[in-house]
Amino acid sequence: MKRIRFCIKCVPLIALAFLVVWPLWFMVMGSLMPLDELRITIGPALTSAEGQSVWPILPSWPTLQPMVSLLLDMPQFFTMFWNTFKIVIPSVVGQLILGAPAAWALSRFRFRGRKVAATVYISLMLMPFQVTMVPNYLVIDRLGLMGNIWAVILPFAFSAFPVFIMMRAFDAVPRALMEAANIDGAGRLRTFVYVGLPLGVPGILAALVLGFLETWGAIEQPMTFLNDPASWPISLFLPQIVSEELGVAMAASLLMLIPAALFFFFGQKYLELGIQSAGIKE
């Protein structure tokens, strides 16, 4: 009986999981498929070829050809890959260094204007990029950053979203601990470093993973602020999908996914804990 109920519960979950994971399976297999097979299988959907797309579970003749041609024939792919790291890593590091103290202050300090400040952060977090693009460009230009990768890094580093996530995480730090630290004579900085940071680690790392995912996939900002394609990140590399390049597009998609997925797997535990702490109330 219990077993049956277990199975009944499993069915919708498995169905849901299949729905979620299947597209990823599709992509991995797509990048291993030879071009002529790709043309037959998903050509009808991506090009103007007639017919219906089909999708075999496994490619009939797995090949690394698209991957090889991407890595060997398109040197700019490597450059762009590396460029991405040059943008992403300072951005997330900045988010932590700048965001964590701000989040701590907003969460744990009592002062006038705290609510207003928190509202400002949340509102800014929700503003679409198009809204502030022009004035943003002006600011970057005034600062003399145009074309420099810092024009992309700095706005990301000051992003409001990680502050929000960390703020929720710090909310979960028991006040009793802070008070204990206070009695022991620890100042606010020491309390933050020795109590706040260790206890907020899940939230901080969750913010880091989310920040990584966001900067990794950023398109508009680098396109607008970096006028030199030589410093563009990988998110801007997506060859026009034509029948000859289907395999390459598939392989590029997969390669773009891999670092994000790796980072994600490394951080998943913390991401979960962090997201959880954002949801927990004191």
Partner: peptide, 15 residues
């Protein structure tokens, strides 16, 4: 269930 979060937009578009 968390995996889709990690998929970059460009890949989603192709999919």
């Amino acid at each position: 269930f968390l995996l889709p979060m990690a998929v970059p937009v460009a890949s989603i578009v192709l999919l």
